[in-house]
Write a protein that binds this DNA or RNA. Structure first.
Ligand SMILES: [Zn+2]
Length: 368
DNA sequence: CGCATTTGACCTGCGC
DNA sequence: GCGCAGGTCAAATGCG
């Protein structure tokens, strides 16, 4: 009932409006999967140790095994240098959400990790956790947390400690959305809709919308408080798929795009293997690492952990797996967080290469 | 024609 | 209770 102006390229304005009356940002064009690939890879590194360059290079050794074909590490480094991944599973009580800024990313991730129980002690013997995850105040036990997220399978930590936790670093976690999922969701009346596990990527790129192999339908755009850039909401085009993602540009560093994925695809990418979704990619990477962890198929040199003392496998696996794997995988994911348990896994597991696909997507769901 | 995008309205949760 | 902010809906519109 309303006439729409030629829209397009509105100028982002301040967002302190009561109702999203504005905000429309530049609509970038998808360019390359490589960006995202690298982002996924870079993420862990950046968060864990800031040894971006070397870590990326090391990680890239892993990617090829799972079908990822990032360009030379040096190239990627120029395209995107910062990466961050964190997850706020449903079980986390909606604890973390993003609006983190580039500068706060680390603090936020730390908080999240802590909430998830990944703080020191959970980390590898490498002890990288200690450096990156400063001691945090134990989150107050929250009443009833409908645990449901795979990622939070073991921890139903809440968001209560979110803001403060981030402070452990001395940085205020500014807008760590401690709010729970509103979701006009039609779940059950009165009952909060369980929030799917999420993870975000910080990608340094000019492109606003990175191609990830899946088709997305934009269903909303909102102005972000304290940011000149709007946030776009996308849903997987597959009607049976509930995966969503948000894309926004960091207000602190406009060159950084923050993509937050929520949920897991129940189908395969539309352009696999050339273009795998972030979820899939992440899953693949995670699996790659995971398999390394489980089976040591590859020589130590190819192991991220081996090349990067700062690279913590448990974190990588546990952070990325839950979102992208199916039920079966979730089980594995849980193992990944407990290296000790891993070892007890039956050895009758499919080989890495083929197993990867099987693990990621059940045959039935392929080509969804 | 089918699908994606645009965009104001609406819903929900939270802080004051 | 009110206002704010995040998230979602859905009709209109655009595009291939
Ligand atoms: Zn999907």
């Amino acid at each position: 009932m309303r006439s729409y102006p030629p829209s397009h390229v509105h100028k982002p304005e301040s967002v302190d409006r009561v109702d999203d009356k504005k905000a429309t940002g530049p609509q970038g064009k998808i360019r390359s999967i490589n960006h995202l690939t690298a982002a996924v890879v870079g993420v862990e590194v950046a968060k864990l140790a800031q040894c971006q360059a070397e870590a990326l290079a090391a990680l890239l050794n892993v990617a090829p095994e799972v079908g990822l074909r990032p360009r030379a590490a040096s190239d990627i480094r120029t395209d995107l240098e910062v990466g961050l991944v964190a997850m706020a599973g449903a079980g986390c009580g909606d604890g973390g959400d993003w609006p983190f800024s580039a500068d706060e990313a680390y603090a936020d991730s730390s908080a999240l990790l802590a909430e998830l129980g990944w703080a020191a002690g959970f980390m590898d013997d490498d002890g990288c956790a200690g450096e990156l995850l400063p001691p945090l105040d134990p989150p107050p036990a929250t009443p009833a947390g409908s645990v449901d997220g795979a990622g939070a399978s073991s921890t139903s930590t809440d968001d209560g400690a979110t803001p403060e936790a981030a402070d452990a670093d001395g940085k205020p976690a500014t807008t760590t959305e401690a709010a729970s999922k509103p979701a006009p969701g039609k779940t059950t009346k009165g009952q909060k809709r369980a929030r799917q596990p999420r993870f975000a990527f910080m990608t340094k790129t000019e492109i606003d919308h990175l191609e990830d192999g899946y088709r997305w339908r934009k269903y909303g755009q909102k102005a972000v408080k304290n940011s000149p850039f709007p946030r776009s909401y996308y849903r997987c085009s597959n009607s049976k798929c509930t995966v969503k993602k948000r894309v926004e540009r960091s207000s602190d560093d406009p060159s950084i795009v923050i993509t937050t994925y929520e949920g897991q695809h129940c189908h395969y990418t539309v352009t696999f293997p050339r273009g795998a979704s972030a979820a899939t990619l992440a899953g693949q990477i995670a699996f790659s690492a995971h398999h390394h962890l489980l089976y040591n198929d590859l020589p130590p040199l190819h192991s991220p952990t081996a090349q990067n003392p700062l690279f913590c496998r448990p974190v990588l696996s546990s952070m990325l797996l839950p979102q992208h794997c199916n039920r079966q995988e979730l089980q594995v994911a849980s193992y990944s967080t407990q290296p000790s348990s891993v070892m007890s896994l039956p050895t009758s597991v499919p080989a890495v290469d083929k197993g990867l696909l099987d693990d990621m997507v059940p045959p039935v769901m392929r080509h969804g």
